[in-house]
């Protein structure tokens, strides 16, 4: 019994560490340790149930061991801030007043495309509409909208931004899709003082003529320009 308990504990700890290292996006609506429990408990219960050569007691002890870890983690999480950080991590701010936090994004293994996807799911299309975007400890996105002044103009049409530069490189596939020349973006960025394109971490462009870009370790910028002959995608 004690052996089964210890073996379950080792498996649990290793799986928990792996899930934590894989980042928050691997889990959905659960804390990392709850996710590990969900993965383990079904297997632990079903193997001795279906394999008649294994005493049922082994499965029962393993399930009880999982229960013990769950209780222990819950108590530690509530009692100690330090353990709480280790067990459930802390929410990560990936967009703030400065723009996208790429260091945090890389730590969480999240790409700009995935970030855009989550913003769209939340009903936002542009990065500059967001005051704060956080990834909660359970892997869910929380978005806090930027306060709009009354004078602020409403966009002519619903913008659909496309990511055209990521980590200093043009995304040719996206550019072809919206039939936009690289030279136009290069020209706009050059006029705004960008000498080296590789310094641009991210740039999105929308069909209203808004270019959002962010240089390494700098705040984001928004440039409004006119498309020749209008643009739709």
């Amino acid at each position: 019994m004690l052996l089964v308990f210890v073996r379950t504990m080792i498996t649990f700890v290793i799986m928990f560490a792996v899930i934590r290292l894989m980042g928050k996006r691997q889990i959905g609506e659960m804390q990392p340790y709850e996710f590990v429990i969900t993965l383990l408990i079904a297997e632990l219960a079903s193997i001795p149930m279906s394999d008649l050569s294994i005493p049922l007691l082994y499965g029962i002890v393993a399930v009880l061991a999982i229960f013990v870890f769950h209780q222990l983690f819950t108590i530690l999480e509530k009692k100690s801030v330090f353990f709480g950080r280790i067990i459930s991590s802390k929410p990560s701010i990936i967009i703030d007043s400065e723009g996208i936090n790429f260091k945090e994004m890389r730590g969480l293994n999240i790409t700009v495309n995935e970030l855009q996807e989550n913003l769209r799911n939340a009903g936002y299309s542009n990065f500059d509409e967001i005051e704060y975007a956080l990834i909660e400890t359970n892997g869910k996105f929380s978005i806090l909208e930027k306060q709009k002044s009354e004078n602020e103009k409403q966009p002519q049409k619903t913008p659909l931004p496309v990511c055209v530069i990521e980590e200093g490189k043009f995304k040719d596939w996206e550019l072809n899709k919206i039939q936009l020349e690289k030279s136009l973006i290069e020209k706009i960025l050059k006029e705004d003082g960008i000498k080296n394109l590789s310094d641009v971490e991210v740039a999105t462009i929308d069909n209203n003529g808004k270019l959002y870009y962010q240089q390494k370790n700098q705040s984001y910028k928004v440039i409004n320009f006119d498309f020749e002959g209008g643009k739709k995608w």
């Binding site: 004690l2 009880l64 013990v68 108590i75």
Partner: peptide, 23 residues
């Protein structure tokens, strides 16, 4: 919290006692 702790230690005690009996 107290209830959780009591349950936790009861289960742990059960496993330890069970292991001892099994051995």
């Amino acid at each position: 919290m107290v209830k959780s702790s009591v349950i936790l230690f009861s289960v742990l005690a059960l496993i330890i006692a069970g292991s001892y009996f099994e051995n």
